[in-house]
Each structure stands twice: as C-alpha cells, then as structure tokens.
C-alpha cells in the first residue's frame, strides 16, 4: 500500500506535527519504504488468531475511586511554559 503527499499531510495533521513542504517528499519516500516493508505481514495467515494487546496476564486491581491530592496546583503547573494562578494558559479558543 503506497501513500501520496495528501496522506502525509493528513496524517501530519492527525499527529499534530507541522510538516514543512520542503520535508514532505523525503518523509513520503521514507514512509513508503517502511510501509512497503511492513506489508510483509500480509503474507502471514492470521485466520482465527486473537490480537495480542499485552503479554501481561495477571488480574488488574481496581483502585478506590478517590482523589489523591498529594501535589499542589503550583507544583503540577511548575513545568508549564505558561501558567496563571495554578492554571495552564493556552491561546483563546472561544470567541
């Protein structure tokens, strides 16, 4: 399955990574190479095989549904590029 520039642009948007026009063709070639290679898997007969999501097969515990407020808002926003009064700040998204 080979992909074209429009798919590269679309996937870039989905991945929220801006792709410069100058980078597009190189990336396209690399992706087509990789996808051509993983296409090998089509040769494998997987009829009736269950997908394996994890190797972990022990039972998982439900934790109690209670908040754990060990960290203050100030601590949690400490690494944020922009914050105000314990909140994260983003550009205005509503008019």
């Amino acid at each position: 399955m080979s992909i074209d520039n429009s798919i590269v642009r679309k996937v870039g948007k989905l991945a929220k990574i801006k792709i410069k026009e100058s980078e597009e063709n190189k990336l396209l070639d690399e992706l087509n190479n990789i996808l051509g290679w993983v296409d090998e898997l089509k040769k494998v007969d997987t009829e009736g095989v269950e997908p394996m999501l994890s190797v972990f097969n022990e039972s998982m515990n439900m934790r109690e549904d209670k908040s754990d407020s060990k960290f203050s808002n100030n601590l949690i926003t400490k690494n944020s590029p922009e914050k105000k009064a314990g909140f994260f700040v983003v550009p205005k998204v509503v008019e």
């Binding site: 399955m1 996937v11 993983v38 494998v44 095989v49 269950e50 997908p51």
Partner: peptide, 19 residues
C-alpha cells in the same frame, strides 16, 4: 491507527504478535 488502515496494519500486527 488511522481510520481505514487500522485493521490492515495495527490489528494485523497484534495478531502476528500473538503468533
């Protein structure tokens, strides 16, 4: 993982992982 390719790639890979 995107719509239209999920089954052909991701799901297929999970099955091969099982094998």
């Amino acid at each position: 993982l995107s719509a239209g390719y999920y089954d052909a790639y991701y799901l297929k890979a999970l099955k091969v992982r099982q094998l």
